[in-house]
Amino acid sequence: MDLSLITFVQILVAVIAIICLMVANAVVMVYVERKVAGFIQRRPGPYEVGPWGTIQAICDSMKLLAKQIFVPANVDLVLFFLAPVLAFFPVLLLFLPIPFGPYLTPWKTPDGLVLILAFAGFGVLSNLLAGWASNNKYGVLGAARAVSQSIAYEIPLMLALMAVVFQAGSLNLSVIVEKQGWVPWEWNIVTQPLAFFIYLICLVAETNRAPFDLPEAESELTAGFHTEYSGMGFALFFLSEYANMLLVSFICATFFLGGYKGPIIDGFWWTIIKAYAVMVFIVWIRWTFPRVRFDQLLNINWKWLLPLGLLNLWITAIIIKVVN
């Protein structure tokens, strides 16, 4: 790995582009999510602000920018302000190894997956800090839930991705995409359906979204770990939630849905279409299912996903050994 000047500039440009992508994604997804939620509940969703409510999300973000950041009494000031920053910035790094297009990869590193899995834990660390620093019982409960949930679900997530890595024989995300064809039956979703299923469940749990949104369960914990945050503090958590969603959707598209490959011409548009299809699926799930209980959440993981993931990995390894 040579960090020459060109690589450095390339990464810098990529980081700026990714920040733009994250913010634009949050604005679009807020609108899409509210519209989908409305349609599923047979109401129109945002409607009044702009044509069909399209500038509602922008108005909301303006409001958040202008809001005061209220600091409650007896908070740990350093951690209180560090937590939202920590939630937002490590996500940037995670986008670096993702191959958006055949030539459009921010940083072609042979160990892309290791980078992603190593830094994925930062999100939950920031949740923990936020909950702890804000001196609020709901915050602490939400943080505790976030940690135990994340510890539980990261293992089957890794196992599911590992099965694909075994099959491709590489940790490099570009190679994983290259090993898949452009038609749907050449994608990894066909060869690894169980891994895809496990990954889909873990993806919802990892991004703390309904039905696994226990760290911020509104009806039980007001807002969980970000109860005490307002203004930009809250906005950063919000942005990072959507950025995390985007990230897991991109990983899903890369690992299971053939990445940038598609009919006619390969390119970043296929990655984006596939990733957003996954995102809409996540939104759809959120507005369909009720929240699980905490013991159910852990039971699903330790009793089912983990053994299934191990079994899947074992079978994959045997098949690869036999075929080779």
């Binding site: 599923i40 509940q41 047979r42 759809w284 799930i285 507005w287 369909t288």
Partner: peptide, 21 residues
């Protein structure tokens, strides 16, 4: 049963809305 639930919301998504502006 989860799939059945998703079919219900899928139907609702494409059905007419009740809201009166």
């Amino acid at each position: 049963s989860l799939l059945v639930g998703m079919a219900v919301t899928w139907d609702f998504f494409f059905s007419p809305r009740y809201t009166i502006h």
